[in-house]
């Protein structure tokens, strides 16, 4: 038998704490695969966020630190600046990165910090019980937008990659989706490019991963992926938004 796909060694044996059907685990596995394939696992420090993936360090087998809510990019800056030989990743959700941590994110990007940001967007605060996030779609019902997000009161969904793509600091900015095998393969391709940006010391990279939250969306896992395709991707279209010279 020839092995076509195999869970990488960088993914630990510890079962995840995520709800059934939550795509966080897919994002973890992609990162683990790439760290092993690119022989980065032992050089890597992952800065984990506050949110559902707060225990991420149990699931990916690298040196790890746990940041305060939103501060991952600042912490990663401190690690990378003092240890440029390390491979530094932040793993952040949309509440963490796009709300409380937006300043740290934008400035790390603007400075061109040599870090990779994996930004998982499921349109709500999952761990705290499904409150409205900056990425919540218009009309979407959450526990703090019980009548649906309404632009006049709550503004519009924040598109972080589009924002970052117009500043000079970042080298590679992309958005992928975890809704289907095809898009998951594409997500891995994008993240690989992002990782190479840091390996080649080119600068800042960020890949947003459109994800789901079956529990708080009150859907089955299949329905939640279907919602990504029908409702989320039209607002958050996938693709590469900034690819500077030298990105391979």
């Amino acid at each position: 038998m020839k092995t076509l796909y195999k869970v990488p060694g960088a993914v630990t044996d510890c079962p995840t704490t995520y709800c059934p059907g939550c795509p966080h685990g897919v994002a973890h596995r992609i990162i683990g695969e790439l760290l092993d394939e690119m022989q980065l696992t032992r050089k890597t420090v992952i800065v984990w966020p506050v949110g559902c993936s707060v225990f991420g360090y149990y699931f990916i087998d690298t040196d790890a630190v746990e940041a305060a809510h939103g501060r991952a990019c600042a912490m990663a800056t401190g690690i990378k600046r003092t240890h440029p030989e390390s491979f530094v990743i932040t793993y952040q959700g949309d509440g963490d990165l796009a709300s409380i941590g937006i300043a740290e994110t934008i400035h790390a990007a603007a400075r061109g910090e040599r870090i990779c940001v994996i930004y998982v967007n499921n349109g709500n605060y999952g761990m705290t019980g499904g409150q409205m996030a900056p990425t919540t779609l218009l009309g979407q019902v959450t526990t703090t937008s019980p009548y649906g997000r309404e632009a006049h009161a709550n503004g519009f969904p924040l598109k972080v990659p589009e924002m970052l793509a117009v500043i000079d600091g970042p080298v590679y900015i992309a958005r992928a989706s975890l809704d289907s095998p095809k898009h998951i393969i594409q997500a891995k391709k994008f993240i690989k490019k992002a990782f190479k940006v840091q390996v080649n010391d080119l600068g800042f990279s960020l890949v947003e991963l459109i994800s789901s939250c079956p529990t708080n969306w009150k859907m089955t896992p299949e329905e939640s992926l279907e919602r990504i395709r029908k409702q989320v991707l039209p607002v958050f279209p996938i693709g590469e938004l900034k690819v500077d010279e030298g990105v391979a």
């Binding site: 630190v65 305060a68 501060r71 600042a74 912490m75 690690i79 600046r81 003092t82 300043a103 740290e104």
Partner: peptide
């Protein structure tokens, strides 16, 4: 050595936190 002007004190102390986690005098 490293000098970095952060975007805020909040960011600055978290950069210190990151560097401190590597055992670097910061």
């Amino acid at each position: 050595r490293v000098f970095l002007q952060a975007e805020s004190e909040v960011a600055a102390i978290n950069m210190v936190y990151g560097a401190a986690c590597t055992g670097t005098r910061v």
